[in-house]
């Protein structure tokens, strides 16, 4: 067991995936000798060479399209989009080509493509480099979307993504790259599509991912001192989402809170709330509470961005308000 950063866990997962399977290769901008904009691919080119770690021009459509084409011939590409927001450049390749290809050919092709995307706000990158972009793709059947929120999950979900026969969008929260956690050498595999109960509690189910999971965890500790026991669930995959685990938790606590780093409209959190209300209305003692960011782009200035992101304090206060209802 070792104590490593979230970024190191991903780097190690890439290294192990490349070592395990010759069909795996990495493709992206400045990921080879430069080691990536966030240094997440450092050392991979040196170990595996230029045919396993490929630098491309600044061409997101070509990166994703070339990954699709190579996967058609049995390769297992791992494409890097330097910032998740750049998915807008290649939205067609992901939403129209990658997601629909298998379906519209009647199952003639499988596309084991993993796309890594650096997600999220908090570091002052402003509107076009800070969004949590997973929500753009929720309406794309054919994709799987994972959002690791811990060191162990980052490693395990990356390995699962590369081994998966279907396309997986792997969102890394760049605000967590330096967060530390333990990684065991024989870490158990994590199945894509399975949530994890991070903390058990009887009073309220809180669902959160990535940076919001970290903040919700600290809010839960503060609430525990007041006698409020939070059950914290991290879905880990937002497409398909594990409604069973979330629903079973709500059946016990009778309260649902979703904390998400995005505007409410069209979000995975809104989908969770809708589904719980539709399927388990009788289980709820109060309307679901959605703690979201404002319906605005991510602002730049420190104070504005801080106010935009749901804080530990806001999360705790809103949960108190719900339970005091």
């Amino acid at each position: 067991m070792s104590e490593v950063t979230y970024k190191e866990a991903i780097r190690r997962a890439m290294e192990d995936a490349l070592a395990e399977d010759d069909r795996v290769f990495m493709i992206g901008e400045d990921i080879a000798a430069a080691g990536g904009a966030f240094k997440a691919t450092e050392g991979l080119w040196e170990r595996f060479g230029g045919e396993r770690v490929l630098d491309t021009p600044i061409s997101e459509q070509a990166i994703v399209g070339a990954s699709i084409g190579a996967a058609l011939k049995g390769r297992r590409p791992v494409a890097e989009l330097m910032f998740a927001d750049f998915a807008g450049v290649c939205f067609d390749q992901i939403a129209n080509q990658l997601a629909k290809y298998r379906y519209m050919t009647g199952g003639q092709v499988t596309l084991p493509v993993t796309i890594r995307l650096a997600n999220g706000a908090g570091a002052g990158f402003a509107s076009q480099h800070s969004q949590t972009v997973e929500n753009w793709f929720l309406n794309c059947p054919g994709l799987k979307i994972v959002v690791p929120g811990s060191v162990a999950d980052a490693y395990a979900l990356f390995r699962a993504a590369v081994r998966d026969e279907d396309p997986v969008l792997f969102f890394e929260h760049k605000g967590m790259y330096n967060a530390k956690g333990s990684l065991t050498d024989d870490a158990p595999p994590v199945e894509i599509g399975r949530a994890a109960v991070i903390r058990s509690g009887e009073h309220v189910t809180v669902v959160a991912t990535q940076l919001m999971r970290q903040r919700a965890e600290r809010a839960a500790q503060a609430l525990a001192a007041e006698g409020v026991e939070v059950e914290l669930v991290d879905p880990r995959t937002v497409l398909p989402i594990d409604f069973e685990t979330i629903g079973a938790s709500v059946d016990r606590t009778a309260h649902l809170v979703v904390v998400q780093e995005s505007p409410l409209a069209g979000s995975w959190g809104a989908t969770v709330a809708a589904r719980v209300v539709a399927d388990r209305f009788e289980s709820l003692d109060a309307p679901p509470l959605l703690i979201s960011a404002p319906d605005t782009p991510v602002p730049y200035a420190g104070g504005l961005e801080e106010a935009w992101l749901p804080s530990e304090q806001r999360i705790a206060d809103e949960i108190r308000g719900l339970l005091a209802g």
Binding site: G69, L72, K73
Partner: peptide
């Protein structure tokens, strides 16, 4: 881009 990927493979 997909044709290019087929060639890359």
């Amino acid at each position: 881009p997909i044709a290019t990927g087929l060639a890359l493979a």
